[in-house]
Amino acid sequence: MFKFWQKAMALMVGLATSLPLFAQEKAAMADLMRSNGKIYIVVAVCLTILIGLFLYVTSIDRKISRLEKENKNQS
């Protein structure tokens, strides 16, 4: 257990010290994804999820509206 933590710490320190070396001039960004257009896939996936979520909530909203109407007619 202790060894694991030691390793993990070493890894963290290593990462922390090495990262600035990679990117001395510019902070690393996902430029590659942008250049070959793959970022649009990410956007599309998120939008699909969002649209699905909204459709679901809207359907619940409608169902409740119908129930409210029925309830009003009954009473």
Binding site: L19, P20, A23, K26, A27, A28, M29, I39, V42, V43, C46
Partner: peptide, 12 residues
């Protein structure tokens, strides 16, 4: 996702 954001270290 698409607009430019400031380039910052660590945050990226």
């Amino acid at each position: 996702f698409l607009l430019e954001v400031p380039r910052l270290f660590i945050l990226n």
